[in-house]
Simulated scan of single mutants.
Amino acid sequence: MPPRDVLLTVGNEILEATMCYRSRWFEYLCYRPILQSLFNADPNMRWEAAPKPRLTDASYRHGFWDTYNELPLGEQLERVRNHDLVLTEEEPLFDAADIARCGKDLFVQLSLVTNRSGYEWLKRHFPDHRVHPITFTNTHPLHIDSTWVPLRPGLVLHCGERPAEPELMGYFRANDWEIVEAVQPESWEHKQRLSFCSPWLAVNMLSLDPKTLCIEEKEARLADQLTQYGFEVVPVPFRTVAPFGGGLHCATVDIEREGVLEDYFPVRYGRF
């Protein structure tokens, strides 16, 4: 269901991510017919694939989940900041959905499915971009698109329960971006049984253009908030998809866009 977990579009390139779940190793094959047709139709299309991982036991910390969830909150967050999580650095691993694209800048969340080796591989693969490793105050980081959501140039929506590291906030503000905290999701009050997704899947929205956003139809508070910022909101019934692992952003991937490569962050700040 979620092609954006597997495929990353950057310029005229579509890149197949490694994935780190053994259960998702073969998922890229579902999209191969589409990629083949795009490759055949467009002589400028670049079709790339990151090195397919072996996913042996050496790629995982044995017994991680036996102890991690029992740790105090502070220790969990310290491990997130140090990226001392379930993945080792045995081989590059990343999900495409852990990458937020803002023109020349690619923000790579280090998470339960993306390791530092994955970030390093992406940094070398995209030498014409600034590739940044980032973390959030989130004990179970998994995909960036329900935490840090660029809405249009100069405006980013973030999950208030998962504050960004101060230098990331400073980088955006130094470049005149407004950082808006998302309202609490409607799904907070009626979280679905058997769903592994956070209620913050509410902000996992599909941006059609700088003025138009598709969001889940029951997220009325979020719709009101986005309308105040001048967006046209298109409600889409999508709540029953969540238990299967994804929102509107997860379930889509851009394969054709208009525009040129922009630099939205000309000012350096801290390590950025």
Rank of each mutant, 00 (worst) to 15 (best):
F265E: 08
K123V: 03
L151D: 08
F231V: 08
S146N: 03
I99G: 01
C159P: 01
A41D: 11
M19Y: 03
K104L: 06
A220D: 01
P237Y: 08
H129P: 08
D57W: 08
S37Y: 07
Y31V: 01
V241L: 15
M19H: 02
W188N: 08
V233H: 01
N40C: 15
F172M: 12
G118E: 12
D57Q: 14
T9I: 04
L71Q: 12
T18Q: 00
E89I: 14
W47S: 10
L222D: 13
L71P: 05
W25H: 07
R116K: 14
W148S: 07
V10L: 15
A174V: 03
K123A: 13
H62R: 13
G63A: 14
R124W: 12
V108D: 09
E189P: 03
V108C: 09
W121A: 08
K52P: 04
R54H: 13
H249T: 06
P43S: 13
Q184A: 11
D66M: 12
K52S: 09
K191G: 01
H158S: 10
H140F: 14
F136G: 02
I34R: 02
V180C: 14
D128V: 12
K104W: 00
N175G: 06
P153D: 00
R4L: 10
P163I: 09
A97L: 11
R193P: 15
T212N: 13
C30K: 11
G270I: 10
H83N: 15
F272I: 05
Y171R: 13
Q109Y: 11
L201T: 15
H190K: 10
P127T: 07
E181C: 04
E161L: 08
A41H: 10
N204S: 00
E161D: 15
S59R: 04
R268L: 04
P237H: 00
P53F: 03
S117F: 08
V267L: 12
R79F: 05
M45H: 12
C197R: 15
P166V: 14
S207G: 14
M45I: 13
D224I: 06
E232T: 14
V267I: 14
H129L: 07
G246V: 05
N69I: 04
H140P: 01
L35V: 00
P92T: 00
P163W: 10
W25S: 09
G245E: 07
A97F: 06
W177I: 11
S195K: 06
I134P: 10
D209W: 10
Y21H: 15
N40F: 04
C159R: 14
D57K: 11
Q76D: 04
P33R: 07
V113I: 06
A220T: 11
V113K: 06
S37C: 13
V86H: 11
H83Q: 15
T137L: 12
P235E: 03
W177Y: 02
M169W: 07
L110F: 09
L226H: 08
P166T: 10
V234I: 12
R268I: 10
E70H: 11
Y21C: 07
H143G: 01
P92N: 05
E48G: 10
